[in-house]
Design a protein around this nucleic acid. Sequence first.
DNA 1: CTGTTAGCGCCTTCAC
DNA 2: GTGAAGGCGCTAACAG
Lengths: 283, 283
Amino acid sequence: MTTAVHRPATLEDVARVAGVSRSTASRVIAGTGFASPAAREQVTAAVDQLGYVPNPAARALVRGGGVRLVVAVLGTSAAVLDDPYVHQVVGSAARVCTPAGVGVALHWLPFGDPRGLDQLDGDRSVCGVILVNTTEELLAAVPLSLRGRVVSIGVGSATVPSFDVDNAGGAEAVLRHLYASGRRRIAMVTGPRWLPCAQRPVRTYRHLMSLAGLPERVLPGDFTAARGRVAAGEALRRWPDLDAIYAISDDTALGVIAGLRDAGARVPGMSRWPASTTSRLPG
Amino acid sequence: MTTAVHRPATLEDVARVAGVSRSTASRVIAGTGFASPAAREQVTAAVDQLGYVPNPAARALVRGGGVRLVVAVLGTSAAVLDDPYVHQVVGSAARVCTPAGVGVALHWLPFGDPRGLDQLDGDRSVCGVILVNTTEELLAAVPLSLRGRVVSIGVGSATVPSFDVDNAGGAEAVLRHLYASGRRRIAMVTGPRWLPCAQRPVRTYRHLMSLAGLPERVLPGDFTAARGRVAAGEALRRWPDLDAIYAISDDTALGVIAGLRDAGARVPGMSRWPASTTSRLPG
DNA sequence: CTGTTAGCGCCTTCAC
DNA sequence: GTGAAGGCGCTAACAG
């Protein structure tokens, strides 16, 4: 029955209501240190009577921990931050961090400018960093004081642990599928040249094509739909007999599909259709 | 040339190096209050000599502001937090909040349980809330002390401002496109029944179908791919002459495509093909 | 214009 | 077992 303006409860309030000191309240709430069953009882009662929620900011301040996990994405422009893949990383991170009172931030690391990371390690509110689109150069630019708080998706190093999805396996599955459905003239739109972990699917592609005695047709991409669209046109021009395009990243694949439609090709199938049949939105 | 362990610089350090007091340093850094050009100069020099970054947690603590923006998603299960749409909201929010030192958190609001919001308003570290999948009930459950810090995507109220995309317009564009490409037996897989803003495209669909003298074929969906897949099968069973399915949400659309392929239908086109031609992954 | 003085909410030694 | 005291890094009044 709070009558006044509902000011969020503080530890002080809890302690007062529970009839104990702040220290005791803190101990039972943080679950650290000793407390008599009686005190414990009082405090927990007070907590949910007041709807008390510890303030992560204050907690982080005194503990020296941070309140933000940074997803740092290397790219040639800030547009990388709009990539669905990045969004998925951020979303998953947010979900995991929320119960711990940790928020997620999104940083663009300009390609070729290692100072971005220096800024992060001067920030006491950062408790961890996830590197996306990691290169060897980026790994080398990780400040010492950030070690132990950084992980990488893709390539890692002795001081930066890494994890990744099975790029090669995925590529193999897709290509075997295309082969099984009869495709024999398969082009590939790659990821950026400078990204190490994007080379794995390319190697797999080259390997499988050579195994099957099929021609290698590689077009450089950059994970964007725009590039996929253009690449599709190039592919059709260079290799008119194409019967499949393997594009890395969902965005690129959608761009490729758009590009194929632009050119009047049918997807799936890649056989041309009469231009007049091409659907278009009403003006 | 720091030799010792690189402890992140504090305002105190900056003030000492600049030869001024903490207050002065604070003023020029926060850009608030007066400061002589000379002092300003000293301080900024010290700042980037030390690589100083203000601590958002400490700042939030004293200012009474928060350090986290919460994206709160209403849904029947925690799985809603994995939705690509939610990820996009979180990603965009993170991008915007990062420069302000604000992190993003992701909360699931169990459908029919309004207490989730109460917890948020007891949390001093929360500076704002974005409601996703908002219903009237949810709007009514927004605590008074949260007013002014909450916005909604979709429906809003007198105290909760809202914004939204043009659902109806999007639906109309898609349906006109299908019509223009010759489709006349178009089914629709909807969003959840309980979500107000998901009803708009349904109304548009019904309206346009009746305008064109076409049959209404509506199947309930829930934004998931799984439901889309099942719905596609149902649609084919109930209306074997179908020549298009309009699905709301990308996930649902992908599920529908998968369901159509399960049933041996061709996409795009929706004409059946010989089952033997159906591609499948190699074991 | 600048420095001094109080805290923000919480945790963590310390005595008791 | 418990309380009192100090401080995390920063800003917002105040005096000078």
